[in-house]
Simulated scan of single mutants.
Amino acid sequence: MEKFTVLEGVAAPMRVINVDTDMIIPKQYLKTIKRTGLGKGLFSEQRYKDDGSENPDFVLNKPAYRKSKILVAGDNFGCGSSREHAPWALADYGIRCVISTAFGDIFYNNCFKNGLLPIRVSPEDLEKLFDDAERGANSTLTVDLEKQEIRGPDGGVVKFEIDPFRKHCLLNGLDDIGLTQQKQGKIASYEQKTHEARPWA
């Protein structure tokens, strides 16, 4: 898993509450178990018209936000059904951080397992970040995980809380497999002792 240390990039404002996982990645894209290629389906029902052309009114289709790495979103982002494809689609598109006042629990947990940082902030701080994100090409934010702060284009700072274990995993690029591999020496030692004690097993 890619490490998350400091992320600097354009933040796209999405002033929509209760964005569920079906809106993030509609059901027709769930046939694959690959983590790549899902970026094209991200918010597809909002990004594209019925004829397949782009919807110019959708934020990620606006020139200033096409390469956004951060999403500033309304309350209760990622609610709805459990689908790991939602963080996969965000990551494949290039978004590594989502900022909101609240998240759906399963989506929130899935983000950490896939190298995305979901940040909870107060409604007041979210409003400040929306103001920053609505500056178009000048809406660059810097997310510093080690310092647990978001720095705005004018030097304003928003602090955030995060579970220390999840912070450690993101900083070191450790998903569940990576955490297990850290214990490879102990696992090998245990298996060797078990084989010596019970060679028939």
Rank of each mutant, 00 (worst) to 15 (best):
residue 20 D to H: 09
residue 17 I to Q: 14
residue 58 F to M: 14
residue 102 A to F: 09
residue 167 K to V: 04
residue 6 V to Y: 06
residue 74 G to L: 13
residue 116 L to M: 06
residue 147 K to Y: 02
residue 25 I to E: 06
residue 87 P to L: 05
residue 46 Q to S: 11
residue 17 I to N: 15
residue 118 P to T: 05
residue 86 A to D: 01
residue 44 S to K: 11
residue 119 I to Q: 01
residue 147 K to C: 02
residue 31 K to H: 14
residue 58 F to Y: 07
residue 166 R to V: 06
residue 63 P to Q: 07
residue 127 E to P: 05
residue 86 A to G: 00
residue 50 D to W: 15
residue 12 A to P: 11
residue 42 L to Q: 02
residue 12 A to I: 07
residue 43 F to S: 01
residue 63 P to H: 06
residue 157 V to S: 04
residue 105 D to K: 05
residue 163 D to C: 01
residue 38 L to K: 01
residue 193 K to W: 15
residue 189 S to Q: 12
residue 144 D to A: 02
residue 48 Y to H: 05
residue 149 E to Q: 09
residue 170 L to V: 01
residue 190 Y to T: 04
residue 128 K to C: 06
residue 47 R to N: 03
residue 34 K to I: 09
residue 73 A to S: 08
residue 172 N to F: 09
residue 18 N to G: 00
residue 40 K to C: 06
residue 98 V to F: 10
residue 46 Q to L: 15
residue 6 V to G: 03
residue 126 L to K: 08
residue 138 N to K: 15
residue 62 K to V: 13
residue 52 G to D: 08
residue 75 D to F: 14
residue 150 I to C: 08
residue 17 I to L: 15
residue 80 G to C: 04
residue 25 I to D: 01
residue 179 L to I: 14
residue 38 L to G: 00
residue 33 I to K: 15
residue 41 G to V: 02
residue 49 K to H: 13
residue 196 E to S: 05
residue 116 L to P: 00
residue 191 E to N: 13
residue 63 P to V: 04
residue 193 K to S: 08
residue 70 I to V: 14
residue 80 G to F: 00
residue 93 Y to L: 10
residue 117 L to D: 00
residue 137 A to M: 09
residue 151 R to Q: 10
residue 137 A to T: 14
residue 35 R to Q: 11
residue 201 A to Q: 11
residue 18 N to A: 05
residue 191 E to Y: 12
residue 31 K to W: 13
residue 105 D to E: 12
residue 180 T to D: 13
residue 169 C to F: 07
residue 17 I to R: 13
residue 23 M to S: 12
residue 8 E to N: 10
residue 10 V to E: 10
residue 48 Y to L: 10
residue 190 Y to G: 05
residue 48 Y to D: 02
residue 10 V to P: 07
residue 108 Y to F: 07
residue 134 E to L: 07
residue 144 D to S: 03
residue 87 P to D: 09
residue 2 E to I: 13
residue 46 Q to N: 07
residue 20 D to K: 01
residue 177 I to Q: 04
residue 157 V to W: 11
residue 188 A to Q: 14
residue 180 T to Y: 10
residue 183 K to T: 12
residue 199 P to I: 04
residue 178 G to L: 15
residue 63 P to D: 12
residue 170 L to N: 00
residue 79 C to M: 04
residue 58 F to Q: 05
residue 6 V to M: 11
residue 123 P to S: 12
residue 136 G to Y: 13
residue 24 I to Q: 00
residue 156 G to T: 08
residue 140 T to D: 03
residue 38 L to T: 00
residue 53 S to C: 06
residue 117 L to I: 10
residue 17 I to S: 07
residue 117 L to P: 03
residue 83 R to F: 04
residue 106 I to V: 08
residue 90 L to K: 10
residue 120 R to E: 11
residue 148 Q to L: 12
residue 25 I to R: 02
residue 125 D to T: 08
residue 22 D to M: 08
residue 126 L to Y: 09
residue 164 P to C: 06
residue 19 V to Q: 08
residue 40 K to M: 15
residue 85 H to T: 03
